[in-house]
Every structure is written in C-alpha cells, then in structure tokens.
C-alpha cells in the first residue's frame, strides 16, 4: 500500500465534524490586517494534521494564514472545498497554489452572497417578523426568530462543509443552484409588509394612550415622522444624531405647548 492511498482515506467524518465545530470560531481573532486568517488556520488544523506532518504541515499552516475574509456562514463551503483540494495536494495531484487561489478568488463572491442573503435580507426579515409578533402579543417570537434564522445558518454551514468536501470546487455551482440571491430579493418585500404592520400597531398604541392628540391624527404624525427620518438616514445622518435632534425638537415643542396652553 502506498502512502498516497492512505491519505485518500485520511479525512474521516469525525475530522469534518471537528472542522465544523471549529468553524464557529472563524472570526474570533479577526484583525484588520488579514481578517479571519487565524480562524481559518484553526479550522483547517484537524484536516491538515491528518494529511501532513513535519515541514509539509508547517507549510500548509502558513498557506492558510494568508488574508482571508468571507461571510462566516459561507466559510463552511469554502473550508470544505479547501480540504478536498488539500487532499489532492497531499496526494501530489495538484499544486499548493491552487488552494490559495481558490480561497482568494472565491471569498469575495461568497461574501457577497452571504451578506446579501443573511445580513441584508434574512435577518431584517426575521427580525421584522419577530418585532411585529412581540408587539401583537406572540411571546415566543424571539425564539421563533432564532429558530428560523439558525435553521438556515446551520443548514448552510453544515451542508457547505460536507458537500464542499465531497464536490471540491463544484460546491460553488451547488450554492449557485440554491438561488439564495433571488430568495434574498423576495424577502425584502415580506419584510416591508411586516414593517408596515408594525408601524400601524405603534400608531394604534399612540391612539389609545394618554398622549393622544385630536382624533385620528396620530397615524399621520407617526407616518410623516417616519418619512422624515427615512430621508435623514438616506442623507447619511446617523440614527443617534437623528434621535437627539428629534428629542430636542420634541422637548422644545412640548415645553412650549405646555406653557402656552397650561390647561392641556
């Protein structure tokens, strides 16, 4: 039996599970110079130790300490595929540069997909639903948020790692077929629905509080304030500064009204 055949079976599912567990810490030592590099090296370690020893191991570790930055949930797919390429390198089929180039070329597009699906779409969508739920009396909404979000998160991370190892570079094609970018686009409309309903619940609350104004003015007031704030945010004003400007305005207005019309 030759050494290369040994190495072909060197990566067991157990090792992949250990890599999966470690991939949760990919951003622990995040730094501006090389971002997730220490994390990736840490993730790859169980696999690299199974494939290499001595100087080969040192070189492999150094390969994975280069700049790396992608979406943490998509890292599973990239690491899985990298392990497959490392296996080929250990068997002498491929050149060590292949794994570095693969990671370097794929981290950007994968980050684009992950950011636009998870951060910019799924999370606001799930959070908007949960906020609406909490305000309309669904007490388990935060748990629902966690379950909905993490089903997608853990699913993609695990799927990515195991299929990434199985398919190598073809994993990108597989992720493409999931159509995440298209789904992401749709969730924005659902999130908009939830946010509109949430705003209506707030208006309703204002109408039935001790601070209600003339009949039916509250929704319009709330709505116009919302549009003004939206314009402010689009003009790159920060949330905190808008909060203070508006709070100051409200304070002056209420103080003025209370002194001008003491009976109210």
């Amino acid at each position: 039996m030759t050494g290369s055949q040994n190495k072909a079976n060197a990566i067991s599912s157990w090792i992949l599970f250990r890599v999966l567990w470690r991939s949760f810490f990919i951003q622990a030592a995040s730094n501006f110079e090389r971002m997730q590099n220490v994390g990736v090296c840490f993730c790859m370690t169980p696999a690299l130790r199974a494939l290499y020893s001595g100087d080969d191991l040192n070189n492999a570790l150094k390969r994975h300490l280069q700049f790396f930055n992608t979406h943490p949930y998509m890292s599973g797919a990239l690491i899985g595929a990298s392990i497959r390429i490392e296996e080929d390198i250990a068997n002498g089929i491929r050149h060590p540069d292949d794994v570095c180039n693969f990671k370097r070329y794929m981290m950007g597009p994968m980050a684009a997909i992950g950011d636009s699906f998870f951060w910019a779409s799924l999370r606001p969508f799930a959070a908007a639903w949960a906020v609406m739920g909490v305000l309309s009396g669904i007490l388990w909404a935060p748990i629902g948020f966690l379950v909905l979000f993490n089903l997608c998160h853990l699913g993609l991370r695990t799927f990515g790692l195991f299929y990434g190892y199985r398919d190598g570079e073809q994993i990108c094609e597989r992720i493409h077929r999931l159509g995440l970018v298209r789904i992401a686009d749709r969730t924005h409309y659902l999130a908009a629905l939830f946010l509109g309903a949430t705003a209506a619940i707030f208006a309703d609350r204002a109408m039935h509080s001790q601070f209600k104004l003339a009949d039916g003015v509250e929704p319009f007031l709330l709505f116009s304030m919302m549009l003004i704030f939206l314009l402010g945010l689009k003009r790159s004003l920060s949330m905190v500064s808008l909060l203070y400007i508006a709070a100051f305005g409200t304070a002056s207005l209420v103080m003025f009204l209370n002194s001008a019309f003491p009976i109210m």
Binding site: A120, P124, A127, A128, H188, A191, A192, L195, T198, A199, F202, R205, A206, S209, Q210, F211, E218, L221, L222, F223, M225, M226, L227, F229, L230, G232, L233, K234, M239, L242, L243, A246, A247, T250, A251, V254, M255, N258
Partner: peptide, 23 residues
C-alpha cells in the same frame, strides 16, 4: 410628558425608518 411623547411617537417612527432604510 416629553419622554412619553418621545417613547410613543419618536422612537417607534425612528426605528421603523431605520428598518425601512435596509430595504
């Protein structure tokens, strides 16, 4: 009174605006 108005109108509308700016 001021804080009540802020809590009922200002913070909710600002919050919704921040969330809408993500769309």
């Amino acid at each position: 009174d001021v804080l009540g108005v802020i809590g009922l109108y200002l913070i909710p509308s600002l919050g919704i605006a921040v969330a809408l700016s993500m769309l």
